[in-house]
Amino acid sequence: MYGGRDYITALYLTLLEIKDTYAIIATIQDAVVGFSMTTTFDGGLTVMSRASRVHERFRGLGIYHMMKEELEKHTR
């Protein structure tokens, strides 16, 4: 994404290794079409959205919002 300048490519695995990071992926017919992740800090008092992406061909289908709803459920 972003003309090859997306930081996620370089940091994705590192972000997943951070304690209290929760990541989900969205799939359609076994193909990954999106992902989103959050990290919890301050003993659960602060939740930060780390990164979210939806493949450009699958935008406008509500995938991002479904992932965010799932992350909010996990946070609660």
Results as ranks from 00 to 15, higher is better:
1 M>E: 14
3 G>W: 03
3 G>R: 00
3 G>F: 05
4 G>F: 13
4 G>D: 04
5 R>V: 12
5 R>I: 13
6 D>I: 03
6 D>R: 09
7 Y>T: 05
8 I>N: 14
9 T>N: 13
9 T>E: 08
11 L>W: 10
14 T>W: 12
14 T>Q: 15
14 T>P: 14
15 L>Y: 07
17 E>N: 10
20 D>T: 11
20 D>L: 07
21 T>K: 05
23 A>H: 01
24 I>G: 02
24 I>M: 04
25 I>P: 03
28 I>R: 08
28 I>A: 07
30 D>C: 02
32 V>W: 12
33 V>P: 13
33 V>D: 01
34 G>L: 00
36 S>H: 01
37 M>R: 01
37 M>P: 06
38 T>E: 11
38 T>A: 12
39 T>V: 15
40 T>W: 11
41 F>W: 15
41 F>T: 04
42 D>N: 09
42 D>I: 14
42 D>C: 07
43 G>C: 00
45 L>S: 14
46 T>F: 03
46 T>L: 09
47 V>H: 03
47 V>F: 08
48 M>N: 04
48 M>R: 09
49 S>C: 15
49 S>D: 13
49 S>L: 12
49 S>M: 11
49 S>Q: 07
50 R>F: 07
50 R>S: 11
50 R>C: 06
51 A>I: 11
51 A>C: 06
52 S>W: 03
52 S>Y: 02
53 R>E: 14
54 V>H: 04
55 H>D: 12
55 H>M: 03
57 R>K: 13
58 F>M: 02
58 F>P: 02
59 R>N: 02
59 R>L: 01
59 R>Q: 01
59 R>P: 03
60 G>L: 01
61 L>F: 15
62 G>S: 00
62 G>C: 00
62 G>K: 00
63 I>R: 04
64 Y>N: 06
65 H>E: 15
65 H>N: 11
67 M>R: 04
67 M>C: 04
67 M>F: 00
68 K>W: 07
70 E>L: 05
71 L>S: 07
72 E>D: 15
72 E>Q: 10
72 E>P: 08
72 E>M: 05
73 K>A: 07
73 K>S: 09
73 K>P: 03
75 T>L: 01
76 R>E: 14
